[in-house]
Amino acid sequence: MKNLLCYLTLLVFSLQSLSAGIPNKEMTALVELHHATHGTHWTTPWNMTTDVSTWHGVKVVNGHVVEINLFRNNLEGTIPKSISNLKNLISLNLAFNSLTGELPVTIVELSRLKVLKLEMNRIKGVLPEGLGNLTNLEELSAFNNFLTGSIPESIGEMSKLKILNLSSNAFKGSIPKSLGSLTELEVLGLFENTIEGVIPSEIGNLGKLKELVLANNQIGGEVPLEVAQLSNLRIFQIQNNKFESFNNLRYVNEDQFLVLDFDKGDSNKGFKDIGLSRSRMADTKFEEGVPDDDN
């Protein structure tokens, strides 16, 4: 460990003349990210003999790193705690790699972050309870990992969130009622976990919601009447759960849906049978390298 620290210190100081004027802490964080994720084996590695502003996926504005996009770049290893030194980071895209280990708690210190994309990795452990500190976050996508534990209640404090996709993990517990505070939310994906309890009635507060995907869990009770309030909902999937009643679906406007999937054998309601594959919802729907401009 001592030799590693000496190496990193010498490397950072040797790169200062190429740092595009970014602070030493930011340069150190980049170097440690490169080392911790086996940067020499990346598909497109960083050329550390050039100015940091030319490094693949790194965007520098006014002397600070504001974006890191290493989508599908063969990253392995873990995300280092020092990621929190990138205080001006607005977008962090590490999706579609082979990252392991736990999400560092320090990630909640990136208070300016708007986009956090971690999907299609092998990250384990729980989401930090302090995740709600990311009050500027508009997209959190972490589907297809090995995340466990419950979804923290503090997530309801992320009032600007538009996309929340935690599908295909191992989350348990219930859907937090605090999600009802995310009035800007357009996409909520919790597909294929082990979530129990009921759909909270607070879901009716999400007037901008377009996609609600809760299939393949252990959710029970009845579908709340408040779902009928979601006039912008286009995709609604709740099949393969343990619901006791679908009676309240009679109050929804069938014509508003592009996709409506539930266990139709338990109900006499004759909705259109329009299927949607697992791969689209859980894997490929968000497969892109650059976040949308409005996210």
Rank of each mutant, 00 (worst) to 15 (best):
R112L: 15
R112H: 14
R112S: 15
R112F: 12
R112Y: 11
L113N: 01
L113H: 10
K114E: 15
K114G: 10
V115G: 06
L116V: 04
L116H: 08
L116A: 15
K117W: 13
K117S: 12
L118G: 12
L118C: 14
E119T: 15
M120A: 09
R122V: 00
R122F: 03
R122C: 11
R122I: 07
I123D: 02
I123W: 01
I123T: 02
I123R: 01
I123Q: 04
K124H: 11
G125A: 07
G125S: 00
G125T: 01
V126L: 02
V126R: 00
L127W: 05
L127D: 08
L127F: 11
P128W: 03
E129H: 00
E129S: 10
G130C: 07
G130F: 02
G130L: 12
L131Y: 00
L131S: 10
G132V: 08
G132N: 05
G132S: 11
N133G: 02
N133F: 08
L134P: 09
L134D: 03
T135S: 06
T135I: 11
N136H: 14
N136V: 00
N136R: 10
N136S: 04
L137M: 12
L137T: 04
L137A: 02
E139S: 11
E139K: 07
L140T: 04
L140K: 08
L140E: 01
S141V: 13
S141C: 06
S141F: 02
S141L: 11
S141N: 10
